[in-house]
Amino acid sequence: MRLTLEVWRQTDPADAGRFETHVVDDATPEMSVVELLDRLNESLVEDGREPFAFESDCREGICGACGVTVDDRPHGPQPNTPSCHQRLSSWTDGQTVRIEPLRSGAYPVVRDLVVDRSALDRIVQAGGHVAIQAGTAPDADTTPVDHALAEMALDFAACIGCGACVAACPNGAAHLFVGSKLTHLASLPGGREERGKRARAMIAEMEQDFGPCSSFGECADVCPAGIPLAAIAAVNRERMRVVLRGKND
């Protein structure tokens, strides 16, 4: 399979950046987008040229390190699939694949396809964790947790923090990311005690880098962890709850 690649080249954060065109002759449909970049980089190195910098770690869709915009869509054309699982069977012989970094005002490009996603880390540092002394693991069922609730919390805890939701949003909003954290941490006994304090801190931090949500729904279409769109509503629900309740829990 012969594919033409337009790949974003940017030497450093100050560089304006541009697309470079390369051809990969020996692509196969079962290769992933990340493997396509590997193949391209191999041939560039063989020719003594600079390979493209990109992030990738587990390559099984659970780490959230990889993430590039493929043909204008974060991660790629397959919905709810990380870049490392986007197969080239989405394209046919002779087509062009355009690969650029995840785009957001909050994600400055470090180099080529690598962006700085520390704005997401700052939100987690602000309150996306359990900060109380939880002690040692309790015996099973000393604190009963309803099975349906536990499953719901796990659905929202599935977020791998790749940040594609922000890149998919025309507003650069991080509501799917923040909403998923707020929901799962508020559902279970460990995180419940700081529910209000957490919502206030995380949303205040979010507002400095990320945009407002206009319900485009694009985030939930690209999310490789399949976080439900309901997460975006959790942001305002949790924030209003603090106002009405006026307490830290």
């Binding site: 043909d71 204008d72 869509r73 650029e100 785009r103 957001s104 005002g105 909050a106 994600y107 890149a167 998919a168 949003c169 025309p170 507003n171 650069g172 909003a173 880098d209 990320f210 945009g211 407002p212 206009s214 694009e218």
Partner: peptide, 13 residues
Amino acid sequence: RARASRGTHKRRG
């Protein structure tokens, strides 16, 4: 605010 947070590269497609 949405424009500022999105940055220079608009969402396309």
